[in-house]
Design a protein around this nucleic acid. Structure first.
Lengths: 136, 136
DNA sequence: CTTCCTGCAAAGAGTTTGCATCAAA
DNA sequence: TTTGATGCAAACTCTTTGCAGGAAG
């Protein structure tokens, strides 16, 4: 598949590895925090630049969630998530009922469709439980 | 349905009217531009504050699109849109296959689901045509 | 009159850019 | 050695907040 273009640097390798190993989309900040464990001096800018470069190369997909923050995941993984509005945790949604809908919409509207986003939000069981404990 | 709370001001009335009359979700900036036609001195801040207040009252729904910009529309209108990545125009998608999916997901994950977002993006026929003209 | 709302300015958050330095190749 | 990548700081965009003056009730 698409390989990271340009020079091979430790930072680049590390950032890509974090994305590959993650089970959910990560913000630049989250990638930065994880990467920092290995690097004493790593700039958040570098994380942004590499993630955007990966996205341009088609290795990674970037999407903006309903909280306005961009998240990155491997492009090979096409997934949808449900995000807790409180703790911000995401769980994967196995369904993706869009491949057929996509063709239909393209035919109806004349758009050439390059992507879609879908996200559910709500309150996860843990946060719900916490509420109930605080009340009762 | 839910009426605008608090004091009745010309600004508030105008902002709500613009949202009501629009056939697509609008950014604060867009509402501001339209409202400005009537008001010589209206602050963008006021637009933001009122839109957020309307959202809190349940009159309006705010959602962040894939370009990272918040858009507002009447809550009563539950719609999905397909947005051109070039000219940023949106057209409505009549389908919303989520009411059943929602119940299923809630049962499977234990989340209490408060909302969802879905957006398709691509290139609209006009922008595609423009490309072809430039080439040929 | 009282309180909420407005407008202005300034602060915040997330992201991007300019530039000198550094290190892959 | 050459050129792309990094780190730092500053800029930028969208959004939110603090505060004094103004108007709705």
């Amino acid at each position: 598949m698409a390989q990271a273009k340009g020079r091979q640097t430790p930072q680049k390798k590390c950032i890509l590895q974090i994305i590959q190993q993650s089970s959910m989309p990560l913000t630049a900040e989250q990638v930065f925090e994880q990467a920092r464990t290995g690097f004493q001096s790593l700039a958040l800018t570098t994380v942004y630049r590499n993630l955007e470069a990966f996205a341009a190369d088609g290795i990674v997909r970037a999407s903006v969630y309903d909280d306005g923050i961009k998240r990155y995941e491997l492009a090979a993984r096409h997934r949808h998530y449900m995000t807790c509005v409180e703790c911000k945790k995401s769980v994967e949604i196995p369904e993706c009922p869009f491949e057929e809908l996509k063709d239909k919409l393209a035919a109806e509207t004349g758009f050439s469709i390059s992507g879609h986003s879908m996200e559910f939000f709500g309150t996860c069981p843990e946060c719900r439980r916490r509420h109930e404990e605080q009340k009762g």
